[in-house]
């Protein structure tokens, strides 16, 4: 029986959403491919996870080992190389997350499986698996195939697939850990939280976010004025934090915070998906950008194509009136 295998991603006592997204899509693909859906759970003392996962997968393979207590791509690779060699799944899904990026390419290379990364769609066409991924910052989609390879691997973009209710009653099966010694070439030391700032943007009702379009640090005062006039807080996209103009706790996006305010104003932000993923759940999104083709306009409710240095001052005037 063909197998589709989903690697469970969990961290600090929680299964991350992307796991359920992959299991949902995996269920759909299993139907299309006439396959069974298996989830692979690696960790230490993760029995409760297995229970939860059995609602989604036909089988939950659990690899319990103290050496798997904290995620370590080296350890995961050693376990999965053995597990995947044994089971030869037709398709393996791993999250395109930091963990997944650390693991999948080397695992795939070791096993000789073709790997397509950051997939936003997967489908079966004439018996072939087709994956869709993005290029050029999301401006172009690419359709790729795996040249009829019997075993394939993909990393899946976080948030790409919806989560469907898990209604199975899968088997929980223990898989013996092949790890023998401590892994000393790469060791997990600790997690570090971003230093808490004065403002928690995830709690704000109104957010005014700024991107590269602001051009200079001193122009931030204009954005601060707008935020004040709206009664909201200032946030930003990654480049602003990279440049050191705002602290990292203001960053919205995949590697920053996810926010769902009543109003999200995206000023001078092009809308690369890493940013969008952090704010697309906002109630009302307004975008101001000079570029009419900026991807942000595909996620915004209202848009103004114009120079923010002309529009924002006018907005402030009207709000203060």
């Amino acid at each position: 029986m063909k197998e589709i295998l989903v690697l469970v991603e969990h961290r600090r006592g929680e299964i991350r959403d992307v796991t359920f997204e992959m299991l949902s899509k995996g269920r759909e693909l299993a139907g299309e491919m006439g396959a069974e859906l298996t989830s692979a759970l690696l960790g230490y003392d993760v029995g409760s996870f297995a229970e939860e996962l059995s609602k989604w997968a036909d089988r939950v393979l659990v690899v319990e080992d103290e050496k798997l207590k904290d995620f370590n791509a080296e350890a995961y690779q050693r376990v999965l190389a053995t597990l995947l060699s044994k089971r030869q799944p037709a398709l393996t899904l791993i999250a395109h997350s930091s963990f997944g990026t650390d693991l999948a390419p080397s695992l795939a290379a070791e096993l000789g499986f073709p790997l397509a990364t950051d997939c936003i769609d997967l489908r079966v066409e004439d018996g072939e698996l087709i994956a869709v991924r993005q290029m050029y910052g999301g401006k172009v989609n690419a359709e790729v195939s795996f040249r009829q390879a019997p075993q394939r691997m993909v990393t899946v973009r976080q948030g790409a697939f919806p989560i469907e209710e898990g209604q199975r009653a899968g088997q929980i099966v223990a898989f013996p850990s092949p790890l023998t010694e401590e892994i000393d070439i790469k060791r997990f030391i600790e997690y570090v939280e971003a230093a808490p700032g004065e403002v928690d943007i995830t709690q704000a009702d109104i957010i005014v976010a700024v991107g590269r379009g602001i051009k200079e640090k001193e122009n931030l005062s204009l954005i601060e004025e707008l935020a004040e006039a709206l009664g909201g807080v200032v946030a930003c996209s990654r480049p602003i934090v990279d440049a050191g103009w705002l602290p990292s706790d203001r960053q919205v996006g995949q590697s920053g915070k996810t926010v769902k305010p009543k109003l999200y104003m995206a000023i001078g932000i092009s809308g690369a998906f890493q940013h969008i993923i952090g704010m697309k759940g906002s109630d009302t999104i307004v975008a101001i950008n000079k570029d009419p083709n900026a991807p942000i306009f595909h996620v915004a409710d209202y848009g103004i194509v114009g120079d923010l240095f002309d529009v924002v001052p006018e907005l402030i005037k009207r709000l203060k009136a």
Partner: peptide
């Protein structure tokens, strides 16, 4: 190394 994870979290690893 400090590796960037999601949501502002980082992990510290020691690599030979």
């Amino acid at each position: 190394v400090h590796c960037e994870l999601e949501g502002g979290l980082e992990e510290v690893m020691e690599v030979k």
